[in-house]
Nucleic acid binder design. Structure first.
Lengths: 131, 131
DNA sequence: TTCCTTGCAAATCGTTTGCATAATG
DNA sequence: CATTATGCAAACGATTTGCAAGGAA
């Protein structure tokens, strides 16, 4: 891979992601930075998101809703996606990490990792549907 | 939902899926049925795959490679996706189901289910890269 | 001056949809 | 006859890419 050079846009994208605890899409990031970079283009956002996740500075989340979400929190953790409002929330699942660490399957390939996420109805949507 | 009417195409799509243990994409299914239905259209395949997965007769797999895969085996099981060749294989993980059944998180929403899959290098690709 | 990055627009690709016609119940 | 399904082609939406110009090392 070629050497990276500094870019204000990339810096801003990373900073934007670190500040938020939701898990914005490329489009949301783009819109959120338009005031700072009036000529910003979606392509630039996508390119930098790819670069940043290649270097491991951010995470790309593919949670089956057809859109990529991005996470500035690179500490390992799990996610919950609300089927109603689409919101994505961090979730702690006690013992799951150690389960995966200790499990040994009969699989004859090299397991590099796993993806796990949960889905259902988030607290806010639950509240609304009971009214 | 409206009542379903029989269709030879839908029947063939389901049968095609039941017969295979790989996890074909819509396109592969389409190509595989072209000899039987020379005028078959991709749209019909997609529509029926959606119908069949809505009724639970098949499963739609979204494993982060950007393409939907379909599984005629509706018994709960896990999957492994090879990062090299894209192949998707069934995987058994002892104790994982019971872990999820017994776990109770502090999450204040309604958890309806979870998605878990594994990734890495499949046996065949491992063999090739060692040569 | 080298080569990475940007903005812009066009291209890609998987999937969905509108419509007139055919098949099912 | 009422309604669902089909084939075809066009539309869609998210993401990627080619290119000429701008910025970093």
């Amino acid at each position: 891979m070629a050497a990276l050079k500094y870019s204000r846009q990339r810096e801003a994208i990373k900073e934007f992601l670190m500040k938020r605890k939701d898990h914005p899409t490329a489009d949301v990031i783009y819109l959120g930075l338009l005031d700072k970079f009036p000529n910003l283009s979606l392509g630039t956002v996508y390119r930098n998101l790819t670069l940043l996740s290649d270097t491991g500075e951010i995470n790309r989340l593919r949670l089956g809703d057809g859109v990529d979400h991005f996470d500035g929190n690179t500490m390992p953790h799990y996610h919950f996606i609300c089927e109603k409002c689409g919101r994505i929330m961090d979730m702690e699942v006690e013992g799951l990490d150690s389960f995966f660490d200790s499990t040994n399957s009969h699989f004859h390939g090299k397991i590099k990792g796993h993806v796990t996420y949960f889905y259902g109805e988030c607290p806010d949507c639950l509240k609304d549907s009971c009214s």
